[in-house]
Design a protein around this nucleic acid. Structure first.
Lengths: 296, 296
DNA sequence: ACCGGCCATCGCCAACGGCGATGGCGGCCT
DNA sequence: AGGCCGCCATCGCCGTTGGCGATGGCCGGT
């Protein structure tokens, strides 16, 4: 390992600031030191990372590619430091949870609140990801617990059923389906849709359902949160498919209508996934027990 | 940041080896240095990470929790270093691409030209294969990236959608279908066909479509390139099925006519396949990013 | 043409960190 | 029981690393 965390910090700071001088200031040092470290870094690997000019610096292609990885390393290192600090303050544990947006919006707020109230000495770190990323992160020990809809096939992880999650159609009151208590997804395909993350499981479900109906999914707008979906739907830009619990919060305030989906795939079961029960830390196991023991 | 990558390495090595002395040996240093660094690490955050005894060390709960995170940081740092090395010498390293004939004729010329212009230091090695061979080559690491129409079922490879590919009937102006803007494949089955590789996906599609129509595919001539198909068609030896983009180049010069196919299978989606994003070399990833980032 | 901002280089020096020796501790074998 | 061995912590020594400030070259804007 011929580089240092400080090297990475300086590199990121320099590319972000666009200037070695600014980076030095931000990192509480002087430009000459930064210049040297960066030059040495480049020399050590025989690769130009920065383009120097009299008005600052810009990353080369290699530098740009490196930037992302450097940020990832620094982020992880930062988390590690936080965790260390936590231990010195008497914290007894820290659990890293990756969850999909449905779980985060619907179930985790209350579940985590009660858990943290019962275990103030445990810190929970929560990040939102799409299901495939979650499984990967858990498999690679970047997360202790994952909450997702379905494990990717072939995954070696353990999956424990968590909650039921019902998807509903979200429409404006003036939509033709608004008066119906329920509808098939196929009936909704005439409308434009407002979608979520292109790589999310929900998106995939909708695409497949449309394909099975032999019709295209008219997806014009893509956003990344349920409230954004609701806002788009309220604005008349299309209709959406979101979990019932997420819909409930918005139907009243925005005057929208939730229509039950009759398709089988609209009933999803969320799962908690982990590498193995034995590999869980004490804190993680406490959280797992809490999540699975709660009345749903 | 009060710790160092080397601290983490030593910490991981020590907990794995169960002994500071062993860790020192593994890391090519001496025990005293390791002992000091670990003590300093603990002192810096006021947390005991290791339990010392006369027969070695064992991690405390805090240390155990830290272990996973430290590994994650080191893993990412290792990736970063590998990438750096890749840039120094690897960018001279080649990217091996296996692609089917459709991709090679329709999309790769311009895509590769712009890529090589942007990255003159990267060599791209391109071979034409049929889709099944491509998937196999990628799976066996004989190729870095594959471009094909559909992955064989059961394949463990990652497939990323690439481009749309529309197949058309290529006929002479005096053919009965030449006056039609579009036709079903079934209507064309009266004619003789000029075919491509007997084992290619395109050939397979045609065979299956003919079988579904309950009629034989009258295939007399088999060649291995689109221009050969065109020449055969122009010579009146039959009609052909090739991608629209490939047809465009010849319809004018040879006085041929492209007739749209009405069958659903004529709209294919090409995919880029690879083992996993993580296993890609830096150069391969650059090419992948380039291909997926291009406007289609 | 000057000035200001930028980066690279150089010499200086402090501090960090590795090294080897030493000492204390506990278990194990004889 | 006594000696021995392997372990880790501590200490002083010293080489290297790395920060600092000054200097100089470069370019663009005023």
């Amino acid at each position: 390992m011929r580089f240092d965390l400080k090297d990475l910090e300086l590199f990121v700071a320099a590319t972000e600031a666009g200037s070695i001088a600014k980076a030095a200031e931000r990192c509480h040092t002087v430009a000459s030191a930064v210049s040297k470290r960066l030059s040495d870094l480049e020399a050590a690997y025989g690769t130009a990372l920065l383009l120097r000019s009299s008005k600052g610096i810009a990353p080369t292609a290699a530098g740009l590619a490196l930037l992302g990885r450097a940020r990832a390393v620094l982020h992880q290192a930062g988390q590690l430091e936080q965790e260390l600090r936590g231990y010195s303050k008497g914290l007894r544990g820290r659990v890293r949870v990756f969850a999909n947006i449905s779980a985060i919006v619907e179930f985790l707020p209350s579940a985590l609140a009660s858990f943290l109230a019962a275990h103030p000495e445990i810190e929970v770190e929560l990040e939102e990801r799409v299901s495939t990323d979650i499984a990967e992160a858990v498999a690679e020990s970047r997360a202790d617990l994952g909450i997702l809809s379905e494990l990717p096939s072939g995954s070696k992880l353990v999956a424990i059923p968590f909650r039921e999650d019902e998807l509903v159609l979200l429409v404006r009151p003036d939509h033709t389906l608004a008066a119906r208590g329920s509808a098939g997804f196929g009936e909704a395909l005439d409308s434009d849709f407002v979608g979520l993350h292109t790589d999310g499981a929900l998106h995939y479900l909708m695409l497949r359902a449309a394909a099975e109906a032999g019709r295209p999914l008219k997806l014009k707008i893509q956003v990344t949160s349920f409230d954004a979906v609701c806002a788009m739907v309220a604005a008349g830009l299309g209709i959406g498919v979101i979990p019932r619990a997420a819909a409930a919060a918005y139907t009243a305030s925005l005057g929208l209508v939730a229509v039950a989906l009759e398709d089988a795939w609209s009933k999803r079961r969320l799962h908690i996934c982990l590498r193995s029960k034995e590999s869980l830390s004490a804190a993680s196991r406490l959280l797992l027990d809490h999540l699975t023991g709660l009345p749903s």
